[in-house]
Design a protein around this nucleic acid. Structure first.
Lengths: 122, 122
DNA sequence: GCAAACCATGGACCAAAGTCAATGGTTCAG
DNA sequence: CTGAACCATTGACTTTGGTCCATGGTTTGC
């Protein structure tokens, strides 16, 4: 599919998609005379973009993500000795989730407190 | 306490602390002749900095955080009608945790797959 | 009394992740 | 055949969250 459709389906801007591609996170067939010089993205680019979105929510940078995506793809390919990297990221993401949950509790407690003390309670 | 001790106790750089203060996230007594022109930070700045750390892990910006910290502080003070803001942030953080957990699963699955397929399995 | 270790302020600089604008090519509707 | 709607590439610009540097004032150890 072309970039417009991809962008529309995933809800990611064309510019962001192009950025990810330059950073090696997704691939596309380069356009030739046939396709009007328009790049063609494979169906699974949709999944990759969704993965990127989740990863970013988890605080992973694009640079790290490009390494990780390599590992995801290499799952049954080369022997890849980068398992330490993967383990490291898992720890980081777990830590971030813990912190996020702690913060979430604070927010909820606050909301509760605000509700219990209706406005104008002086 | 002075900024050096605070920085050391929480593990946040002095520069970052000063930045947070300029953004209104923490307060300090301005230094006078008495204190050698050194700012004095209250004990609870430690807690605030830890809160900031968690909030950032949860993907909350400093700008939003300064609003939220206002609410936390106002819990039993003014009537504050910004509850919608708080509710919005709660949703955002929940969404981000969900995404992070999804991504974490992907990472763990990958690790497992790499383990199951020991290197050199061609 | 002088270097080392603190502190303050201000401004320059940086990386990450995008967005925006300029320029130029294609195609389709009316 | 013209404008609207796509597409590509390049480079400038923006926001966030810092760090680094320069300059200058205190105070404590030796």
């Amino acid at each position: 599919m072309r970039i417009g459709e991809l962008s529309h389906r995933v809800g990611v801007s064309r510019d962001a998609i192009r950025l990810y591609e330059r950073r090696g996170l997704i691939q596309s067939q380069e356009g030739d005379a046939e396709t009007n010089n328009y790049r063609i993205y494979p169906e699974d680019a949709v999944l990759t973009l969704e993965l990127i979105r989740d990863a970013q929510a988890a605080g992973v940078t694009l640079a790290d993500l490009s390494i990780l995506i390599g590992q995801l793809a290499a799952v049954d390919g080369d022997d890849f000795d980068g398992d330490a990297f993967l383990a490291g990221k898992i720890s980081e993401v777990e830590a971030r989730i813990t912190q996020s949950q702690r913060f979430l509790e604070t927010l909820k407690t606050t909301r509760q407190a605000l509700e219990d003390a209706p406005k104008d309670a002086s």
